[in-house]
Design a protein around this nucleic acid. Structure first.
Lengths: 206, 206
DNA sequence: CGACCTATGGCACTGAGTGTCAATGACTGC
DNA sequence: GCAGTCATTGACACTCAGTGCCATAGGTCG
């Protein structure tokens, strides 16, 4: 019904915006350009997206929820490095699917990493991911998220690995070694991930 | 001469801005408020600071250069975790000096961490710190900064520890256990810092 | 058919940020 | 002391992002 129409308008707006932004650059494209391409009014744009950056970054929020959900779904017997690797893989997996979807994702990633304003927003989103992951990790290991720095640190390291993968993938000429890149990045942070959590508390969740 | 006057105006502007921002909040204070308090024109403000966020975040750039310089000055025989801990300590040390300077710094830290727009800018600066640290680490261990993810990851972990310290320090009721907090945070990331770099290449700088 | 309800568009307004120009003021050579 | 030069400043105008308000079109339910 009306719900479907809303989604349709939002998608049309996002597609038109992404096309223009990737083509000409973030700074030079105005919101008037976007809404002209999408065929709606300027005021309507702001009913769907909170800001110019939001068009590009919006869907990242949902992916963040998915990541946290995946971590919560992992068995408690898994060491943190394995569980976090699987959680972080969720958004990456959608890039390794259809080749055209992958190329589209890569364009968005390049746009974000190369545009300071977008990069900042992306980092802001990541902070929220990190908070969610940290809360879940704290619950997982029975730690106090306010006093113990481990959950926040561990979540941060997982996202750091994620960032590193993205950075390497952006410049990548050839295709999907995403899984391999992810493995290598997590292998590097794993010692800290698994050593620190064992040092204070044994894994005694549930 | 004129150089001194420029610094004077910049400081006056920064002080007035910080006072207002910490007092009323970032969003509600306009640039007109700041320049009225500092006694200069709106146009002059933008000759000294590129944006509203820049007033708060500007000096962080210089601190970043200091951090990288400190890492470069550490002896090559030190393991990465120790060298990075010393590098990151540089900006922290200035908070542990005079009590009034420390309280002022804490106000700024709170302001940044609690304001999304400022937090994003702060993270953006951190990315630049990370790049500098990563380049220095790569040179230190004879790694290729483009292909090997270790330097970027290691630099990221050091800054993550830094962030964690700041986060704990912000809420801290009592005084300086900054050094202790820093030690604890670095102890957690040290396994990854020191294990990964040894796994690929021995330390053979100079 | 009339009473809603929602999505939209139009308009006006604030605030950030930039370009341009004229005035002020200090420093220099004559 | 005086004229020329250079930098700093303030004033004005402008673009663009973002928000509030109100009127209107289209669809639904009674």
């Amino acid at each position: 019904m009306a719900e479907r129409k809303r989604r349709l308008v939002a998608d049309e707006l996002r597609d038109a915006a992404l096309m223009l932004l990737a083509d000409r650059g973030f700074d030079v494209v105005t919101i008037d350009d976007m809404v002209a391409a999408a065929g709606v009014s300027r005021r309507t744009f702001f009913r769907y997206y909170a800001s110019k950056e939001d068009v590009v970054v919006r869907f990242l929020a949902d992916m963040g929820a998915d990541v946290v959900a995946e971590l919560a779904a992992r068995p408690g017997s898994e060491p943190p490095s394995v569980a976090l690797r699987h959680a972080v893989w969720v958004p990456l997996a959608s890039c390794t699917g259809h080749p055209d979807h992958a190329e589209r994702a890569r364009v968005v990633v390049r746009l974000i990493l190369d545009t300071p304003a977008l990069h900042a927003r992306w980092l802001e989103r990541q902070i929220q991911w990190r908070a969610g992951l940290a809360a879940e990790l704290a619950a997982r290991h029975g730690l106090d998220p306010d006093t113990d720095p481990y959950p926040r640190l561990a979540a941060g390291m997982a996202l750091l690995a994620f960032d590193t993968v993205l950075q390497q993938w952006r410049a990548g000429d050839d295709e999907q070694r995403l899984a391999e890149l992810t493995d290598r990045a997590f292998a590097m942070v794993a010692p800290a991930l698994d050593a620190s959590h064992g040092a204070h508390e044994p894994d005694r969740r549930r």
